[in-house]
Design a binder for these strands. Structure first.
Lengths: 240, 240
DNA sequence: TTGACTCAAAGTGTCGACAATTTAAAGCTC
DNA sequence: GAGCTTTAAATTGTCGACACTTTGAGTCAA
């Protein structure tokens, strides 16, 4: 494990709320909790064997991450991502990550290149979509960390889970498309790495932007799948 | 008031916590609550005549906005901004706002130009630093809203108060510098407006980036003021 | 069958309380 | 007086409770 350049955990309060966040986040991204499902505090508290206080804080955190949505009445639901949401997340990623690449290029190291190369190699040998996604996110996070900007990292992390939700959701819809679009991704990674290693900030930023643009091109619209809600908001869901 | 293109308040839960956030935020930015001061929940609850629950939620929100910091022990303090923080915020703004300008340029309207022009005119007639700052932030927020991207807007808003904290803090330190650096800002605004109105995304993005870079150039370091903490963390402060 | 109305069940916002932990002061030794 | 130890105050994390609001099923009239 080479130099993870920036650690991001300056704040770490409570403990129980943290566990609730982790579990719910995982359930939402995996689709166990489908979009549109209501998340009632008493039910969740019972499920986690806690009181409502930690659950409440967890929901606030998940709202901040864009995974759930507060309604005006106060009720909380798993967020439904539309095609427009998909585009918005893409643009936000481009904004943050191309700046990250710009700064990262200026302080790039051989160790960083090595890390990215190993990551790409593992991507080429990946056997499942899930594994591929995990590696892809890992790579991008590494670049953002290399920018050594806590704000940039925090902003990126705050949309990270929405992005992963998009990814997972799309995967579930397009098993048929399989790996094809992801090969494009892998070749794009090589271009980005070359730009980073060359130490040219402008080029790195431009390549990163182009790469994200391309890798998120195969959106539901491009694939001709659903229209508005990425997945039909599953009304049928019973917790506990 | 022309088309405020994007409204950003889809979620709006609690009410008491909201009031606490507003008051504390204002006190922190104005310097009434100086950097480093500890914010204890019981004392704040007493001050606001509420229980700890709303205060707690408010502190979480302020942490998210970067105005306060949680320590590992759980204690909360008003955040101390360093020179590096200043640079980080600048870069984050450049990332978000140049993308915003790029998208805004594509959907620019005469009404938008009119709004910005009125804003610039008011800036030229502004008589206080505070007023000038307020107008400057208003202008930039308008551009971000014109991008019609909820994520971009949310990300921008999440660092907005840190930026205002920088501004206010710097103003308090450099009353002497007065308006000079802000004239640069005003002329930069005209360039940005021209690019936006021309409808060329690349140019708009580039001009916005250059403008922010320039307007945040007059940092404490450039002015040769303090080194690390932007302001000496005032240890002397008694609440209530 | 449809539609408005009623009313109980459920949910949120807020509160005060308690144990565990941390902080800061008082006390003691040298 | 300086430094370490003890002790009391303060603070956090979590809990259960209550009032008020929303939701939704069931009822009744048309």
């Amino acid at each position: 494990m080479p130099d993870q350049p920036q650690d991001s955990a300056p704040a770490q309060r409570k403990n129980l709320a943290r566990e609730v966040v982790l579990t719910l986040r995982s359930d939402i991204i995996s689709g166990t909790l489908p979009p549109g499902v209501a998340l009632a505090e008493p039910a969740l508290a019972k499920k986690f064997g806690s009181s409502r206080a930690p659950v409440r804080e967890a929901l606030i955190e998940l709202e901040r991450e864009g995974l759930v949505q507060f309604e005006a009445t106060g009720r909380t639901r798993v967020r439904t991502l539309t095609e427009q949401d998909f585009d918005e997340i893409r643009d936000a990623r481009i904004a943050l990550e191309s700046m990250a690449a710009r700064r990262a290029a200026a302080r790039w190291t051989p160790a960083a290149s090595e890390f990215i190369e190993r990551n790409i190699a593992r991507q080429e040998n990946a056997s499942t979509l899930a594994e591929l996604s995990r590696l892809d996110v890992e790579l991008h996070e590494y670049v953002v960390r290399m920018a050594a900007n806590q704000r940039l990292l925090a902003l990126w992390q705050s949309i990270r889970w929405q992005f992963e939700m998009c990814l997972a959701s799309t995967h579930r819809l397009q098993q048929k498309m399989a790996f094809k679009p992801l090969q494009i991704t892998v070749s794009g990674h090589r271009l980005v790495l070359a730009a980073l290693a060359s130490g040219k900030p402008d080029v790195a930023a431009q390549k990163m932007a182009a790469h994200i643009e391309g890798s998120m091109e195969w959106s539901p619209s491009a694939a001709g799948v659903e229209e508005h809600p990425l997945e039909r908001g599953a009304a049928a869901f019973s917790h506990s």
